[in-house]
Amino acid sequence: MTTGPAVVNDAARAHAFAAGDHSALESLYKDVSALVYTMALRSLGSPADAEDVTQQTFVSAWNARESFDPDRGDLRGWTVGIAKRRIADALAARGREARRAEAAQGNVTAITSDDSDNVLLAYEVEALGDPRKTIVALAYFEGATHQQIAAKLDMPLGTVKSHLRRSLQELRHRWEVSDVAS
């Protein structure tokens, strides 16, 4: 997890970005480019297309920076929303291409946008930080019961449940941020 929980709510960076500070764009790219690129790669299946989407996402974000409200918005969520739109555009364009070329090719890899949603969701789980990411991982990736998690982590059952409730709230919130942005 060398990306770690990214510096997502850095208010100073958000303001600097909106104000046109190039170093804020660099910082944003450093934190979010791997997420955007991987989402695009999973959805589109082609490194070249994923590179295009990544480039378009950050250039679009920069050009639209004045429409981003740093006091209300979450820069990472907003950027991911733009990335989702660019991925959807690329898929739509490919669909048109594919229909034209279908007779010749007839072999379009079935990749759904669910793949990029999964990348994002896994990333957000990671960003919950410990102990929540571990608790969520045990509960949903390993299928452990709440009691088993409590025993394994030597943590009161109520604390495990509380962490899970908070984690779901956080994940739902993050989900909505990027959905609203797109």
Partner: peptide, 13 residues
């Protein structure tokens, strides 16, 4: 969450 396999490797552009 239940459908995630839990291992996503981020790739750097």
């Amino acid at each position: 969450l239940g459908a995630l396999d839990g291992t996503i490797e981020l790739q750097t552009p």
